[in-house]
Structure formats: C-alpha cells, structure tokens
Amino acid sequence: MFERFTDEARQVVKLAQGNARSLRHNHIGTEHLLLGILEQPDTASARLVNRHGLDHAQASEAVVRVLGTLPIGDIDADALDAIGIDLAAVREKVEAAFGPGALDRQPTRDRRGGLVSGRSIPFTPRAKKVLELSLREALALKSRDIRDGHILLGLLREGQGLGVRILSDAGIDLPTLQVEMRAEVGTSRQ
C-alpha cells in the first residue's frame, strides 16, 4: 500500500513516528497521524485544518494533555550530575551525531545476535485502520495515489481515535471538514 503514497503522505507517516518518539510514546496512534499531517503546513490537509483553527502546536499540546509524556529519568540525571556529568549536554552531543531521539530508542538484536539501532514503534489498530481507510478514500475519489488529504479523510472516517477527538475538541465541524477535504483532493487527482 505504501508504494501508492505520495511523498507528502509518506512524510505524514514518518512525522507521526517522529512525534511519537519526541513525546516518548510507545505507539503511533491516530493522534500522531494528525500531528504528522499538521507538521507539514504547506500541504492541502494541514492548510485546511489550520483554516478551521487547529495547528501543530495546539494539537501537540492536546495530545500531551491526554496522554502525557514518558519521563526521561530524572533520578538518573541527578545521579550523573552528582558525579559531574551533564546529561543534557551528553544528550545534545549524541543527538547531533546520531539524530533526534537517538538515546530514546531501545537497542534490538538481529538474527545473528548483533545490536541493531533503535526499535520501531508499532501502529495502534486504529492508526492502521486510518491508513487502510485512506486507501479506500483514494479509491472512492478515483485517485491513483494516496495523498495526505486521503489520510485526513481516513482519520475522519475512522471516527473513534484520539486524532478525531482532538479535532472535535478544537471546535472543528467534522462533516464540514470532510466535505471540504474531499473537494480538495478530488480537484487534485492525478
């Protein structure tokens, strides 16, 4: 299915994973897909949701209010500080060399027992359903590819996840958003 995704739609999925990592969540849910959509402000779906009054920062705050974030480990930081090691400085240098969240990933082992860099974060069943529904939306709109707008339509069609709850709690009229997004992706068919 991912071979049908446009670059922007693939980026939504990558950014969803990045948002889950930065919030230190152990799953990629519908809320992270929404954050992935909103993190690309130049896409049709993000522009539309922004026009309805919700941006990435507001959505991220809503996710944190509901789910929180996992602690980094203040006890460890205090213990290291007591022996003269600044954990924030170490983290900054490691992330500069290996990328954001490099210390947050748990190492795994390959089939031969060798260490492999960070683990992947699993999608929740609802997030998987959103991606499946994005394909159905694309097919229904006779699109040859799956765009970021189809992912938003899949999110709205799934209708039960935290992503939709955040949109609704922001006062967005979901049926209107759905009609407007369908019109937008319908005119940009390829």
Rank of each mutant, 00 (worst) to 15 (best):
P100W: 03
R47G: 15
P122Y: 11
P41T: 05
I146K: 00
T108L: 14
V94E: 00
T43R: 04
R105Y: 14
L131Y: 05
A88I: 12
L67P: 00
G84R: 09
V116R: 13
A57Q: 12
L87R: 07
L141V: 07
L33G: 04
H56I: 08
I85N: 09
S45G: 14
P41E: 04
R136T: 12
A59H: 01
A59F: 03
A62W: 00
R47E: 15
A140L: 09
R105S: 09
L141N: 10
D86K: 08
D55Q: 06
I121M: 11
D110K: 04
G118V: 11
V94Y: 00
E39V: 00
I121D: 04
G84H: 05
L70F: 11
A46I: 07
A88T: 13
H32G: 07
L139D: 10
D110F: 08
T124L: 09
K142N: 10
L152Y: 04
G113Q: 13
A97F: 01
T108R: 15
G68C: 12
E61L: 10
L152E: 02
R91P: 01
R109D: 11
R51I: 01
L80A: 07
D81R: 13
A77T: 07
I151L: 02
R144S: 14
F98E: 04
P122D: 11
R111E: 14
D148W: 00
A127V: 11
A127T: 10
A62E: 02
R126L: 13
V66R: 06
L155Y: 03
H56Y: 12
A77F: 00
S45I: 07
A46L: 08
T43C: 08
I37R: 01
